[in-house]
Design a protein around this nucleic acid. Structure first.
Length: 692
DNA sequence: AGCACGCCGACT
DNA sequence: GTCGGCGTGCTC
């Protein structure tokens, strides 16, 4: 043994016992006040998910505050860490190493966000470090050094809540927010005229919150939605935050690039912006005096974080509203089963409109199913049946007509023209499709051109389309309505996603989620290939199909102004009826009852453990919680890198009340796994979205 | 994650 | 005799 430390003893002045924390490396003067920093280390292994203590050098005494980024020596290497707290005495009985370096004095991790991140890590059986990587944007030193704002008096928001009048419980929600309360609501938004659409309602309740002296946070699926909310906020008296000014709203999106993202983050952190409007990761934004959190369209898959520990915005904000005493609002045109569960458990209020209001504000909806068409004597086989064609032609006189197509591309799938077997690549057996009208079929997996294709079943050499995408639909509609401009909007379309179209006659073809807004509403919407949207057995498929249709239908003028929606195809009956009656809550409620019956989430809590068979079994075997049900493991399609056998998935199921215990036990088992280096790879996911 | 220590096989 | 395999343990 060498290097026995005596340095601490020099502080033993008046006979008091030397606090352990005062033991320190020779030659480093320590902070007088709170000389111990508890830090969270930026290393992935699950068994390191706890705080480690370091001595605070006197030089960092003032700046190494909770929330700052530091460098520490850990296990012989330099690692990044966050100071979580400063304390007087260490719990660790052993020498403390000094903090190595203060990266920045900016306390980027506020106590509230640190607490939220810990709760999120616990809830999803992940590590604090993983969550902090989602929550805190990478530092941008130049942005950090930019001029600080002078305190210019903030603008006073306009106090209008007109957009909430149609909703039962809407005005009361706003009043409660204004008074500093923390009401919780699940809101079914309706289509409306300019100034009363969902972004306006969101902006008004945000303005109400700011008027009441608190900050607000709005999380939406994508950048286009951010713009819509920011525009509506201006009308509600909350302008875009200007650097150098006090107040206003900032947009916070990872897509805006590191500098813009960090600048917006700092504006919130420093209390300069009152309102943050952003995508997924902004659920963790450090808004000061948070009074309201809003999640718009919680059924959009963009709200589900794809990185470990896979938290969902709707649930993160629910945790946050409880931890910070903030009001909670989740809104959509549709209703997810999960949001319905918040209502039916009594956790949140239902904020919806009366039937009469729904009828007044929504377009006329008609389902063109094959039975419906047969009744009218029309050919059912046509993708665009005559009544739909006629409706488009008639409504085009009044304005733009929206056509929603569930698939992007031209002809994403083709089949043998003789025996109808789906056409597969001769090399890798991937699906063949057409990129353009004059194109050669190409493989969707390996990209090879199928130049001299022959059917492997029957030897046929001709191909027919089995799925039609938005591009091909646009081409067909162009021919069907000569002289009418056709626009295409979609992530993979040539012009990308269009934010808006003009109020002139045009056919607008869009994939779900990419529908442009029309200033005074579309004259009509036609939802094609309805059967495609409800085919399959995935969990939540039906409410999700309704969500996509309602999102498009909500852009159409009310029936009183001729607004018409046509659903074309034989979709699942209940979903079709829910659209016709504009009743997303009814569908979600029935679906929830079914989930209770079948012991499926959210009536129960589940976790998926995916990876190499032996590794998965080892993790699962250690888990003991009351009422645990282990399903599987069964093989899945993917395989771990380098593995010979396909991965397996085990599904763990517990009664809803046992969710926290399951998460804790799963995290503990994963920690044992990482400590023992059991080998292979294992992914643990709570509330898995895909259950195969 | 990285790095130590520690106990069993084929090799200069 | 040793060089070196990776199983187990630890890191404030």
């Amino acid at each position: 043994m060498t290097g026995v430390e005596h340095a601490g003893e020099q502080l033993e002045l008046d006979g008091l016992p030397v606090p352990r924390a005062r033991r320190r490396p020779r030659g480093v003067a320590l902070a007088d006040e709170q000389p111990v920093a508890r830090v969270c280390i930026d290393l992935p292994p699950q068994h390191l998910d706890r705080l480690f203590e370091y001595a605070v050098p006197a030089t960092m005494a003032a700046d190494a505050r909770p929330g700052t980024r530091v460098k520490v020596r850990f296990g012989g290497q330099d690692v990044d860490a966050y100071v979580i707290e400063r304390v007087d005495e260490a719990e660790h009985d052993g020498d403390l190493l000094p903090l190595r370096r203060l990266v920045s004095a900016e306390p980027v991790l506020t106590p509230a966000v640190a607490r939220l991140a810990r709760a999120v890590a616990d809830r999803w059986a992940g590590t604090l470090t993983d969550v902090l990587r989602l929550a805190v944007p990478p530092r941008h030193a130049r942005v950090e050094a930019e001029e600080q704002a002078d305190d210019v008096p903030s603008v006073v928001p306009v106090s209008s809540t007109s957009a909430w009048l149609p909703y039962r419980g809407g005005p009361a929600f706003g009043q409660h927010v204004l008074a500093g309360g923390a009401p919780r609501a699940v809101w079914t938004a309706l289509p409306g005229p300019a100034g009363e659409r969902w972004p306006d309602a969101v902006a008004q309740v945000v303005a109400t919150c700011v008027l009441g002296g608190r900050g607000a946070l709005v999380v939406v699926p994508d950048a286009r939605d951010i713009d819509q909310v920011l525009t509506a906020l201006v009308a509600a008296g909350i302008p875009a935050h200007r650097p150098g000014a006090r107040g206003g709203a900032v947009r916070l999106a990872a897509d805006d690039g590191p500098a813009a993202r960090y600048r917006a983050f700092l504006a919130a952190l420093r209390g300069q912006a009152d309102v943050v409007v952003g995508t997924r990761a902004s659920a963790f934004a450090p808004v000061r005096d948070l009074g309201l959190v809003v999640c718009w369209d919680d059924g959009d898959s963009l709200h589900a974080e794809p990185r470990a520990p896979y938290p969902h915005v709707r649930e993160v904000l629910a945790l946050r509203s409880e931890l910070e005493g903030a009001a909670y609002l989740v809104g959509a045109h549709g209703r997810t089963v999960e949001a319905q569960a918040l209502v039916e458990s009594g956790w949140a209020h239902d904020v919806s409109a009366e039937r009469s209001v729904v009828r007044r504000r929504t377009p006329r909806v008609q389902a063109l199913t094959s039975t419906e068409l047969a009744r009218e004597g029309a050919a059912a086989a046509a993708r665009l049946p005559t009544p739909a064609w006629r409706a488009i032609r008639d409504r085009l006189a009044d304005g733009p007509v929206l056509v929603q197509v569930p698939r992007a591309g031209y002809v994403p799938a083709v089949a043998c023209g003789r025996c109808r077997a789906s056409a597969r690549c001769t090399t890798c057996h991937g699906p063949l499709g057409l990129a353009r009208a004059d194109g050669v079929p190409t493989c969707g997996w390996c990209g090879r051109l199928a130049t001299d294709w022959r059917c492997q079943e029957c030897g046929g050499a001709t191909l027919r389309s089995v799925r039609v995408g938005s591009e091909r639909t646009a081409e067909e509609l162009g021919r069907a309505f000569p002289g009418v401009p056709v626009r295409v909007s979609g992530a993979r379309a040539e012009g990308g996603v269009l934010a808006a179209v003009r109020d002139v006659p045009a056919v607008v073809v869009a994939t779900p989620g990419a529908e442009p807004v029309a200033p005074t509403g579309y004259a009509a919407a036609v939802l094609l290939d309805a059967a495609v949207s409800t085919a399959g057995s995935a969990l939540g498929l039906l409410p999700d199909a309704l969500r996509r249709w309602l999102a498009a239908a909500a852009l159409v003028r009310p029936g009183s102004e001729g607004g018409t929606v046509l659903l074309v195809g034989d979709a699942e009956e209940r979903v079709t009826q829910s659209l016709v009656r504009w009743d997303p809550v009814g569908l979600a409620s029935r679906e929830l009852a079914e989930r209770v019956e079948l012991a499926l989430p959210p009536a129960v809590r589940m976790a998926a453990v995916v990876g190499r068979r032996d590794a998965v079994l080892a993790v699962v075997r250690r888990i003991e919680v009351p009422g645990l049900d282990v399903l599987g493991p069964v093989p899945v399609d993917e395989r771990s890198p380098g593995a010979l056998e396909p991965d397996v998935r085990a599904v763990l199921r517990v009664p809803r009340a046992g969710g926290n215990a399951l998460a804790r036990a799963l995290a503990a088992s994963m920690a044992v796994r990482s400590a023992k280096r059991e080998g292979g790879t294992v992914r643990a996911q709570l509330d898995p979205t895909e259950l195969g």
